[in-house]
Computed example of a mutant assay.
Amino acid sequence: METIQMKINDLNSLAVQGRGLEAFDKYYDDDVIMQENENTPTVGKANNLKREKAFFEEFEEFNMIGPLKVAVGENVSMVEWHYKFIHKKNGPGEWTQVSVQEWKEGKIIKEKFYYNSK
Rank of each mutant, 00 (worst) to 15 (best):
43 V>S: 09
3 T>S: 13
83 Y>E: 12
67 P>V: 00
39 N>W: 07
80 E>Y: 04
78 M>I: 14
94 E>Q: 15
82 H>Y: 14
90 N>D: 13
103 W>Q: 07
111 E>D: 12
71 A>D: 14
80 E>D: 03
69 K>T: 05
8 I>R: 06
61 E>G: 04
19 R>T: 04
49 L>H: 09
33 I>G: 00
44 G>S: 08
98 V>N: 00
2 E>T: 06
6 M>G: 14
43 V>R: 11
80 E>A: 07
7 K>C: 10
105 E>S: 14
51 R>E: 11
82 H>I: 06
54 A>W: 01
105 E>T: 03
109 I>M: 03
7 K>E: 11
79 V>P: 01
103 W>K: 07
48 N>V: 05
7 K>I: 08
97 Q>S: 13
106 G>P: 03
60 E>D: 14
34 M>F: 06
114 Y>E: 00
57 E>H: 07
30 D>Y: 11
93 G>A: 02
54 A>T: 02
71 A>P: 07
27 Y>F: 14
112 K>P: 00
62 F>G: 04
46 A>G: 02
98 V>P: 00
20 G>H: 07
5 Q>L: 15
67 P>K: 00
100 V>K: 01
114 Y>F: 15
101 Q>L: 13
102 E>V: 15
112 K>S: 08
92 P>H: 14
15 A>M: 05
23 A>P: 03
33 I>Y: 06
50 K>I: 10
37 N>K: 07
102 E>C: 06
35 Q>V: 02
88 K>M: 11
3 T>Q: 02
40 T>H: 11
96 T>Y: 04
28 Y>R: 03
54 A>L: 02
14 L>I: 03
36 E>K: 08
16 V>C: 01
36 E>C: 06
101 Q>R: 10
21 L>W: 10
26 K>N: 10
96 T>F: 04
71 A>Q: 13
107 K>E: 05
112 K>W: 08
84 K>L: 12
77 S>P: 07
22 E>A: 12
13 S>C: 03
72 V>P: 02
12 N>W: 02
87 H>W: 14
81 W>P: 00
4 I>H: 02
87 H>I: 09
4 I>R: 00
44 G>M: 10
82 H>V: 06
91 G>R: 08
12 N>G: 01
87 H>V: 08
101 Q>D: 15
20 G>L: 13
39 N>Q: 12
52 E>V: 12
64 M>V: 09
74 E>L: 03
71 A>M: 14
67 P>F: 03
14 L>V: 05
49 L>S: 10
11 L>I: 08
85 F>G: 01
33 I>R: 12
110 K>F: 09
113 F>W: 08
30 D>V: 11
63 N>E: 13
102 E>A: 10
26 K>I: 09
111 E>Y: 02
56 F>N: 07
68 L>E: 15
17 Q>N: 15
118 K>R: 10
36 E>F: 12
109 I>D: 04
67 P>D: 02
118 K>S: 11
99 S>G: 08
41 P>L: 07
67 P>R: 00
60 E>L: 04
61 E>T: 14
107 K>A: 01
31 D>P: 02
92 P>Q: 14
61 E>I: 09
75 N>T: 08
